[in-house]
């Protein structure tokens, strides 16, 4: 296991070009000798992008590249023209990230305090912070839980809280890493509805193929490469065929 802090500066010159979307240029990533991703050249401008792949295929690392949680060992990732290597602060303000396990994402003891956390980091004044927190809690049916301990929420409510904590920061794009994997059918449907209703560009990594209904583009990742890049119908068919050959 190797932890290395990037030596790159965190230049904060936000000269974004929103029309460019997310660009991955000859991206590869390895952990030590293990190649996790290689040869990825993509531009993601569609509002709804899905990513599917078997366990260990590299899709979670792919997701983490998109907001600078992981910096590629080869190539470059640009978000609206901003490099995740050198302009990570600006990138993270533009790209929110929702994790698979909300318990790891919720860092404050109570619901409202947790939603406010990202805004505190952004230096949003207290009055505006309170208004934005109240608005987002109302929107996701958590207003009645504002002062409740986060650990007492149901799994579905925790995932909604995790999403609220990201949305309150008003990112232009949101990456979801298997957002419904730990949820029952009702909560998975609720989260799917929330995702469907978002105005932002959304990239969803998932094993639940029905979540991709209505998406514009689906990438199939296998062995660290994008082996299919198509609308949901053909991409899901290719993914099923790939899995049946295993």
């Amino acid at each position: 296991m190797r932890f290395r802090r990037s030596s790159a500066a965190t230049a904060d010159t936000d000269v974004a070009e929103p029309g460019r979307g997310i660009e991955l240029r000859r991206v590869g990533h390895r952990y030590g000798d293990r190649v996790v991703l290689e040869g990825i050249d993509l531009q993601l401008t569609e509002p709804r992008v899905g990513v599917v792949g078997a366990n260990g295929s590299g899709k979670s690392t792919f997701a983490r590249l998109l907001n600078g949680l992981v910096v590629p060992t080869e190539g470059q990732v640009l978000v609206d023209g901003l490099d995740t290597r050198t302009q990570v602060r600006a990138v993270r303000r533009r790209v929110g990230f929702v994790f698979q396990d909300p318990d790891a994402q919720i860092v404050h003891p109570t619901v409202a305090e947790d939603v406010a956390y990202g805004l505190e980091n952004q230096g949003v004044p207290p009055d505006e912070r309170a208004a934005r927190v109240a608005e987002v809690l109302e929107r996701y049916g958590l207003a009645g839980h504002a002062d409740h301990p986060a650990h007492l929420l149901s799994g579905g409510q925790k995932q909604l809280l995790a999403i609220a904590g990201v949305l309150v920061m008003q990112p232009a794009r949101i990456v979801f890493d298997e957002p419904t994997t730990l949820l029952d059918l009702v909560n998975a449907r609720r989260v799917a509805e929330v995702i469907a209703g978002l105005e932002q560009q959304v990239v969803v990594v998932t094993h639940q193929l029905d979540l991709l209904d209505g998406f514009d583009r689906v990438l199939v990742v296998d062995g660290g490469r994008v082996v299919e890049d198509a609308p949901p119908g053909p991409a899901v068919a290719a993914y099923r065929a790939l899995m049946e050959r295993r």
């Binding site: 932890f3 293990r34 994790f99 994402q105 990202g118 990201v166």
Partner: peptide, 17 residues
């Protein structure tokens, strides 16, 4: 990772596999 994603730290960290 979640703290990084929510703006706690602006420096990207390479993480184990």
């Amino acid at each position: 990772e979640a703290l990084d994603a929510r703006g706690a730290d602006d420096t990207p960290v390479r993480r184990p596999g």
